[in-house]
Design a protein around this nucleic acid. Structure first.
Lengths: 161, 161
DNA sequence: GCGAATACTACGTTTGCCGAAGTATTCGTT
DNA sequence: AACGAATACTTCGGCAAACGTAGTATTCGC
């Protein structure tokens, strides 16, 4: 069993920086974490709805609206209504947005390389294996441990008379 | 060389949660990341000054004041003036604070265990080694890349006539 | 055809961060 | 001892992001 006093301090000290990415991710322009994740997601999916975005970044609708507002205002994202269902908003990257994500990805690669390229090929392989294993198991545990925070889609029908 | 399209998506997806710790730390009461780090630091050192706190969490004084204000208001931290130098503020955990950190550490241990305890002893060892190596090298690179953000303690004596 | 459900937006509040100015105390020099 | 500079903070005001609540528009289901 893991005990905080043994390794916890060391662990925390070492990953502390990770919890304040804004300090070392010094992007040229100002974007919040959520904005960056939103754009990466958009780049991958090409077209998404607000609801999909909300699911991805795991935030309330009103927060997502704010994020998209900013991205639209700065001309990186386009916001259209669906023809089929006019309630639905369809988000797309603009050309500027696509360019930006491209350079963003470059930057992310650089960071990952900084992390990884002091490792030997063997170590990289090993690490990737461990990460996958850890992520897989963690996901499984979180899903079973706190299903309510994960999906809170209990359907409650309340009849008012 | 690392290329985003190969592994980047996978990587980002997997560490995404890490960038939003507030989502999974939010058990118990409400604390910001900085508040938690401050309390852990305080627990380790027992007594610290504001300046030491600022160095640790790497923020401006005014931010630290805010953090401590909140912790004092919620009765987890005590704020006294030093007898020897009455400019200096000495911070200590209250009894409640100590209790809280204890349970906090427990929680952190649990999280780390969740991550780690599916790994074999060999894998744990290997992982710790890799983490240390990575952190060490990353630190070195960041220091040389942007030395100005790290230590801005050039002494400038300006004589005004 | 109409009430409920869905997919959002608008608005106002709160939270945390931070720069600039202010206060209190001590240090260093003469 | 005296006083200007340095140190160690706090106060204040402003800002950006997150978010709860209420509101709008559209579609679904019976």
């Amino acid at each position: 069993m893991f005990d905080y006093d043994n390794m916890g301090d060391l662990f925390i000290e070492n990953i502390k920086k990770l919890f304040f990415p804004e300090e070392w991710i010094n992007l040229d322009l100002k974007f919040s974490k959520s904005e960056i994740f939103a754009m990466l997601f958009l780049d991958k999916r090409k077209e998404i709805t607000m609801t999909e975005l909300v699911e991805y970044i795991n935030s309330p609708m009103s927060t997502a609206t704010g994020i998209v507002d900013r991205l639209v205002k700065s001309r990186y994202v386009q916001r259209d209504r669906s023809e089929k269902d006019r309630r639905i908003v369809i988000l797309r990257l603009t050309e500027d947005g696509t360019k930006l994500v491209k350079s963003l990805k470059g930057m992310i690669s650089e960071y990952i390389n900084m992390i990884v390229d002091d490792l030997t090929e063997e170590e990289k392989q090993f690490m990737m294996g461990i990460i996958l294993k850890v992520v897989h198991n963690l996901q499984k545990k979180l899903d079973t441990a706190i299903p309510n925070t994960q999906d809170n889609n209990e359907i409650k029908k309340i009849i008012i008379e």
